[in-house]
């Protein structure tokens, strides 16, 4: 809420994903990004995040180019200026496609929550993979299975504890959100 007050009630948070033609070389890319920044700043916007997602293969060719540089920019802007930016981006030759979306600005709490979710998801994946491996490996000799059993007994408790802890923390955060 504090942030919203800071940027004024008329400002809206936007996220723009821009594909820049691969005809531009890697060295020229910063200049093109600067140009885009210029457009946003000219219209009174403030950039909050700039991320280069790198060169990617397009799912289909656009204007005869099969690859493109993906650039993600988050910025605050008064909604009246949105159309001006949209138009300017459309006129830029280097930009082969762009998409500007209104998004909710992430608060510290959101970021924290995301990190927790990622960690628990990673842990779960690990566990599933382990299970699959165990399921897949059919007992060839009795010795091997015995060893595996020992491993089973030794390994899971540690993992489970950490998962439970994570879940607890997650629940807490979720509860806080509900109360809020």
């Amino acid at each position: 809420m504090k942030r919203a007050e800071q940027r004024g009630p008329t400002m809206q948070h936007y996220e723009a994903l821009i594909i820049i033609s691969s005809r531009i070389t890697e060295e020229e890319l910063p200049f093109v990004v600067d140009k885009i920044f210029g457009i946003i700043k000219k219209n009174g916007g403030t950039i909050t995040k700039n991320e280069n997602l790198g060169k990617k293969k397009l799912a289909f060719s656009i204007k005869q180019s099969r690859y493109g540089f993906y650039v993600l920019i988050e910025f605050n802007l008064t909604p009246e200026k949105y159309h001006a930016i949209e138009k300017d981006l459309g006129l830029m030759e280097e930009v082969i496609r762009h998409q500007i979306l209104k998004i909710r600005e992430k608060t510290e709490r959101d970021l924290e929550r995301e990190r927790m979710l990622e960690r628990s998801a990673a842990l779960r994946l690990q566990e599933e993979e382990k299970k699959e491996k165990k399921m897949g490996a059919t007992p060839v000799s009795t010795e091997k299975t015995e060893i595996k059993k020992e491993e089973k007994a030794a390994a899971p408790p540690k993992k489970k504890i950490s998962l439970e802890e994570l879940d607890e923390k997650l629940d807490k955060i979720l509860d806080d959100d509900m109360i809020k």
């Binding site: 594909i19 990617k56 397009l58 799912a59 289909f60 656009i62 493109g68 993906y70 496609r97 998409q99």
Partner: peptide, 11 residues
């Protein structure tokens, strides 16, 4: 649909 427009996944 948004991802399709940005050529992240095919139509």
């Amino acid at each position: 649909k948004r991802a399709r427009h940005m050529a992240l996944i095919p139509y």
